[in-house]
C-alpha cells in the first residue's frame, strides 16, 4: 500500500460546464494510466476526494460520476472559499491535484431488485448523481427508479441537460420542483418545497430504498414525510459533509461524536445517524 498519504494524483480538465450560479462541473482525465486504474479499482459511488490547486490548498467534495464510466471522473462544486475559487479559475487543459477515493459508499449491490427513491435539494444532487447514473447503467438489476429534485429557483437546478434526458427516459420517473417564487414563466415542473411535493407523490415504501441529500432544513422536514410513508430508518441513506483536511482519519476534525465522517462516512443510514450526537453536527 502507498504510504505517501499526501502525494496526489494528477487530473487534467477535459471539459468545464457552468451548472448554476457559482456551480461548475469539471470532467477530469487522469494524467497517468496507472493512477486511473488504481482509482477505479477502489472507487464506489458515494466516496469523496480532495481536489487541490498547488499554492491554494485542497477542498473536499464528492465524485459525481459513476464507476461505470471508467475513462474519467466528474465533479460538481460551488465556489465558497479560497480553494473552490481557485479551482473555478482553472481552464480546460489545466491540471489539478486529487487524492481519493476515500470514505464509505452507497451499498448499491445490496439494493438489487428493490425500488429506489432519490430525493435531492439544490447543490446536493451531485453526490446522488453518481448513484443515479450507476443504477441507470445497470438498469435491469433494480426496480422502479424515482428522482425528486428541487432547488430554490430554476437557475439553481444543476445538470439541466441531464434532467431533460432523465425526464425523457421511460424506465424512470423524474419530478423537479422549485420553491414558490423561484419559477420562470416557461417552467414546466412543480412549484413547491421538496417535502410537500414528496408527500403529494406518495411513493410506496414497500421494498424501496430512499436516498436523501440536501440542505439541513430540507432533510429535517423531509424525514417525517418518509417516516409517515413507512420508510424504515435502515432504508434511508444520506451523505454527510464536514470540514476535512486529511481525508484518511488522522487530522482529527471531521468526527461527529466517535464517528469519523472521512472513514466511517460520508454515507450513513438514518439509523446510524440517529445514534450520533446531534450537538456535534
Amino acid at each position: 500500500m502507498n504510504d505517501d498519504l499526501y502525494k496526489p494524483f494528477l487530473l487534467r480538465i477535459e471539459t468545464a460546464r457552468d451548472e448554476a450560479p457559482d456551480v461548475r462541473t469539471f470532467r477530469l482525465k487522469f494524467a497517468d494510466e496507472g493512477e486511473r486504474v488504481e482509482f477505479f479499482r477502489r472507487y464506489r459511488v458515494g466516496m469523496f476526494g480532495l481536489y487541490g490547486v498547488p499554492g491554494e490548498g485542497e477542498s473536499t467534495f464528492c465524485v459525481a460520476s459513476p464507476p461505470t464510466r471508467e475513462g474519467y471522473i466528474e465533479c460538481t462544486f460551488r465556489k465558497v472559499g479560497r480553494v473552490t475559487q481557485a479551482l473555478q479559475d482553472l481552464e480546460v487543459g489545466q491540471a489539478l491535484t486529487f487524492r481519493g477515493p476515500y470514505g464509505s459508499h452507497f451499498p448499491i449491490d445490496s439494493w438489487k431488485g428493490r425500488d429506489l427513491l432519490f430525493i435531492a435539494g439544490g447543490i446536493a444532487l451531485p453526490p446522488m448523481r453518481s448513484v443515479i447514473w450507476n443504477i441507470l447503467d445497470r438498469r435491469a438489476e433494480f426496480g422502479k427508479v424515482t428522482v425528486v429534485y428541487g432547488a430554490r429557483t430554476t437557475a439553481d437546478l444543476v445538470y439541466k441537460h441531464e434532467l431533460a434526458e432523465w425526464a425523457a427516459r421511460p424506465d424512470m420517473t423524474l419530478v423537479t420542483t422549485v420553491d414558490p417564487g423561484g419559477q420562470t414563466p416557461d417552467w414546466k415542473g412543480k412549484v413547491g418545497f421538496v417535502p410537500v411535493v414528496l408527500k403529494e407523490l406518495n411513493p410506496a415504501a414497500k421494498n424501496c430504498v430512499a436516498v436523501l441529500c440536501g440542505p439541513p432544513i430540507m432533510i429535517k422536514l423531509t424525514l417525517p414525510v418518509l417516516s409517515a410513508l413507512g420508510f424504515s430508518p435502515k432504508d434511508i441513506y444520506t451523505t454527510l459533509e464536514n470540514r476535512m483536511k486529511c481525508g484518511v482519519g488522522k487530522c482529527g476534525r471531521c468526527n461527529v461524536g466517535g464517528v469519523y465522517v472521512c472513514k466511517d462516512g460520508p454515507v450513513f443510514t438514518l439509523d446510524e445517524l440517529s445514534r450520533l450526537p446531534a450537538g456535534d453536527m
Binding site: Y6, V53, P54, G55, G57, E58, K245, C246, C251, G252
Partner: peptide, 19 residues
C-alpha cells in the same frame, strides 16, 4: 495530541504542501 492542518505555501517557483 496529533490534530493537524494542511496548508499550501508557495513562492514563484515552488509550492510546498505543509502539515
Amino acid at each position: 495530541c496529533h490534530c493537524f492542518d494542511l496548508q499550501d505555501e508557495s513562492d514563484r517557483k515552488e509550492c510546498r504542501r505543509l502539515r
